[in-house]
């Protein structure tokens, strides 16, 4: 059995931010467990989730930090932005206030992350179209004006949830390939594990020597 296809070669750190109740934890849960949590308690702290995905044939481990959205924790959750390669900024399409607060979330993100951090805007709860309070068009425009990627998604149905997480990873991966993202920078939010191919035999000088054989 070759071990190659199973190991991952990158770790990307993501943060999920946005007002309380917009569905950040549900999005994370949907992404990692493919399930919807109907009554999810408020996040009091920072939850942690991981999943391994594949982008351009590369295995990438996403390390996702789901932050508390309550205003009173705002100052504390700022500690967690540092070193994020991706930021998923979430609002609730049925609550205008959560959309209005985006600019302040965006300011925090820009101030506390680095320029190559990919920011992805998610308008969540798009399954509740009847209660819509924010139009797709205005959010799309907001995203364009601020250079953000954007989808409307639903943590309930799972619609476009994968897309948001995966597109973010693709963009980060592109940045790495373009050289825009410096892997060596301490706060790039990406860890690279140079992939090792091939099994090797031990030689006496303890250097894995590819040409050694037991004959």
């Amino acid at each position: 059995m070759s071990g190659g296809p199973y190991s991952y070669s990158y770790i990307f750190k993501y943060i999920i931010i946005g007002d309380m109740g917009v569905g950040k934890s549900c999005l994370l849960h949907q992404f990692t467990e493919k399930k919807f949590m109907a009554d999810c308690p408020h996040t009091i702290g920072v939850e942690f989730g991981t999943r391994i995905i594949e982008v351009s044939g590369q295995k990438i481990k996403l390390q996702i930090w789901d932050t508390a959205g309550q205003e009173r924790f705002r100052a504390v959750t700022r500690s967690y932005y540092r070193g994020a390669a991706g930021a998923l900024m979430v609002y609730d399409i049925t609550r205008r206030s959560t959309y209005n607060h985006l600019s302040s979330w965006l300011t925090d993100t820009r101030n506390l992350t680095n320029p190559s951090t990919v920011i992805f805007l998610i308008g969540n709860k798009c399954d509740l179209d009847g209660q819509r309070d924010v139009t797709y068009e205005e959010a799309k425009q907001f995203a364009e004006e601020n250079g953000l990627m954007f989808v409307e998604a639903s943590a309930k149905t799972g619609e476009r949830v994968e897309e948001a997480f995966l597109e973010t990873a693709k963009k980060i991966f592109q940045s790495i390939q373009d050289g825009r993202l410096d892997l060596n920078a301490a706060e790039s939010g990406v860890q690279h594990k140079p992939s090792q191919t091939g099994r090797t035999t031990l030689s006496n000088d303890q250097q894995p020597n590819k040409d050694t054989c037991s004959c």
Partner: peptide
């Protein structure tokens, strides 16, 4: 049997 070694293969196989 013991000396034949396909060393261009990774990892080398006997």
């Amino acid at each position: 049997y013991s000396r034949m070694c396909f060393s261009s293969h990774h990892p080398p196989k006997t």
